[in-house]
């Protein structure tokens, strides 16, 4: 069995003259929870958008489950974007049907269970919900797919600490040894115990990819502390 889930080689993305990502090589294995960390404008979202085919690389390549980005990879990648793309007039009940139509791997029971645990009103329109509730709805929909790779761009920024715990717990308990999760966030100390490994991105370059415990072992400090050191302003 091939354990490689994602492979990016010499990946470069330029916006005009500005290099957002420069010659990045990243290999990710199955069954891992990976933190994609870097300050604002470091290239995290660019990388994520390239993984989802929302951007085309200037040079280099990405493969997920051995395939170039396209229909086949979209079937197995569940993506939570930074900004909402859902119709504001829809209710969670309608969104549930929408996702079931769209994705073969959508698990309705899992979604209903999470909606219930987080006390979400299934009949309320998205536009009438608070920012945090909207984020919860989106995250539930994304996490309810039985995907091979979950890519979560800033998934917990707007939700309260109790819901944050619940969401991290959901990630842990729904954990499938064949699937991986990429989480991009600034809230490092909240999630670092949940991560297998972290990738630090700085000015479009990968500066570190290492397991969380190896970092704590070698550096004698948390990921949060190391981040503050590496990215000191």
């Amino acid at each position: 069995m091939n354990d490689i889930l994602l492979e990016a080689e010499y990946l470069t993305k330029c916006y005009g003259k500005k290099k957002a990502l420069s010659n990045i090589n990243i290999t990710l294995e199955k069954g891992k929870i990976i933190g994609l960390l870097g300050p604002n404008g470091s290239g995290k979202s660019t990388f994520i958008k390239l993984c989802n085919g929302l951007l085309q690389p200037t040079s280099g390549s990405i493969k997920i489950v051995g395939q170039p980005i396209g229909i086949e990879t979209k079937k197995v990648v569940s993506y939570l974007p930074e900004r909402t793309y859902l119709d504001d007039n829809m209710t969670p009940t309608q969104l549930l049907d929408y996702f079931m139509d769209f994705y073969e791997d959508f698990d309705k029971e899992r979604a209903l269970g999470m909606f219930k645990s987080l006390n979400i009103d299934m009949k309320q329109r998205m536009k009438n919900m608070s920012k945090g509730t909207k984020e919860k709805v989106q995250l539930i929909l994304v996490m309810s797919r039985r995907a091979k790779l979950y890519i979560l761009d800033e998934p917990i920024g707007g939700v309260d600490p109790a819901a944050r715990d619940y969401i991290l717990n959901t990630i842990i308990t729904n954990y499938d040894p064949e699937a991986s999760v990429i989480i991009s966030t600034h809230l490092i100390s909240d999630i670092e115990n949940v991560l297998d490994e972290v990738i630090f991105i700085k000015n479009g370059e990968k500066v570190l990819q290492k397991s969380v415990d190896a970092i704590r072992e070698d550096e004698g400090k948390s990921i949060d502390a190391l981040f503050r050191e590496v990215f000191r302003c």
């Binding site: 891992k32 717990n169 842990i172 308990t173 954990y175 115990n193 949940v194 969380v212």
Partner: peptide
């Protein structure tokens, strides 16, 4: 493993 990991809030592999 899963129960323990969830309870402790840590990565299941750890």
């Amino acid at each position: 493993v899963r129960e323990l990991a969830a309870e402790a809030g840590v990565n299941p592999n750890t």
